[in-house]
Structure formats: C-alpha cells, structure tokens
Computed example of a mutant assay.
Amino acid sequence: MHKINLDLTTINDSMLDFRYHEEARSSFKSLFQERLLIRTHDEIDGKMVYYYHIVKNPETSQ
C-alpha cells in the first residue's frame, strides 16, 4: 500500500483566505485550469460547502 505523507498544518497555513465561493473558485480555476472539477455541494450549519476534485492526470480521469 502506498502511503501519502501530508502536513495538513502547512497546507492550511499556505491557503488563501477567501470571503466568497466565487473568489475561491476563480483562484483555483486559474491555478488548476481544466484539472479542477466541481463534484457536489452541501449545506452545513447554514453555510454552503463545495466539493471539488483536482485531477492529477486528465488522460486517465473519467
């Protein structure tokens, strides 16, 4: 089994602080281009939460 080593604190600290979903979506689309795919959304505690996939290899993605 392949183990992924992630430092979530470092990732979180490097994230930009967006005020609106459209700001975040625009920034991530600019960064990841066609590799960023919205999958679904949900409402949690009265706030919308959006879930995206970042595709590593578009040629093997479905």
Results as ranks from 00 to 15, higher is better:
residue 45 D to F: 09
residue 23 E to D: 15
residue 15 M to D: 07
residue 38 I to C: 10
residue 49 V to Y: 08
residue 62 Q to I: 13
residue 43 E to V: 15
residue 60 T to N: 08
residue 3 K to R: 11
residue 57 N to Q: 09
residue 44 I to P: 01
residue 41 H to K: 14
residue 59 E to L: 14
residue 19 R to K: 14
residue 7 D to Y: 02
residue 20 Y to K: 12
residue 3 K to C: 04
residue 3 K to M: 10
residue 26 S to C: 05
residue 30 S to Q: 14
residue 34 E to A: 10
residue 36 L to W: 02
residue 57 N to V: 08
residue 58 P to W: 05
residue 33 Q to D: 13
residue 56 K to G: 10
residue 3 K to L: 11
residue 41 H to I: 00
residue 15 M to W: 03
residue 60 T to P: 00
residue 26 S to G: 04
residue 40 T to V: 00
residue 42 D to C: 06
residue 49 V to R: 11
residue 50 Y to W: 12
residue 32 F to W: 15
residue 48 M to L: 12
residue 11 I to H: 02
residue 61 S to Q: 07
residue 9 T to C: 01
residue 25 R to W: 05
residue 28 F to I: 00
residue 39 R to T: 13
residue 13 D to K: 08
residue 18 F to E: 05
residue 19 R to E: 15
residue 1 M to V: 02
residue 23 E to V: 03
residue 14 S to Y: 01
residue 48 M to N: 07
residue 45 D to T: 02
residue 61 S to L: 04
residue 1 M to L: 01
residue 6 L to M: 10
residue 22 E to C: 03
residue 53 H to S: 14
residue 59 E to D: 13
residue 54 I to L: 15
residue 46 G to S: 06
residue 52 Y to M: 04
residue 21 H to Y: 15
residue 60 T to Y: 05
residue 52 Y to I: 03
residue 55 V to M: 01
residue 37 L to E: 07
residue 56 K to W: 02
residue 44 I to D: 04
residue 3 K to T: 08
residue 5 N to C: 05
residue 53 H to L: 12
residue 5 N to E: 13
residue 60 T to H: 06
residue 17 D to S: 13
residue 26 S to Y: 05
residue 31 L to C: 07
residue 41 H to R: 13
residue 57 N to H: 12
residue 31 L to N: 05
residue 24 A to P: 02
residue 10 T to W: 01
residue 27 S to V: 11
residue 44 I to Q: 06
residue 20 Y to A: 04
residue 62 Q to C: 08
residue 58 P to R: 09
residue 4 I to R: 07
residue 53 H to E: 14
residue 57 N to F: 10
residue 36 L to H: 03
residue 39 R to I: 13
residue 22 E to Q: 08
residue 10 T to G: 02
residue 18 F to K: 03
residue 44 I to G: 01
residue 36 L to T: 02
residue 18 F to G: 05
residue 50 Y to F: 15
residue 40 T to E: 11
residue 31 L to K: 15
residue 53 H to N: 14
residue 61 S to H: 14
residue 59 E to N: 13
residue 29 K to G: 01
residue 23 E to C: 01
residue 9 T to R: 07
residue 61 S to M: 09
residue 31 L to I: 11
residue 33 Q to N: 14
residue 4 I to E: 08
residue 31 L to W: 03
residue 30 S to D: 13
residue 28 F to K: 03
residue 5 N to T: 11
residue 17 D to M: 08
residue 4 I to P: 00
residue 20 Y to T: 15
residue 17 D to H: 10
residue 35 R to I: 02
residue 51 Y to S: 11
residue 28 F to E: 04
residue 12 N to H: 09
residue 59 E to G: 04
residue 39 R to P: 01
residue 5 N to L: 12
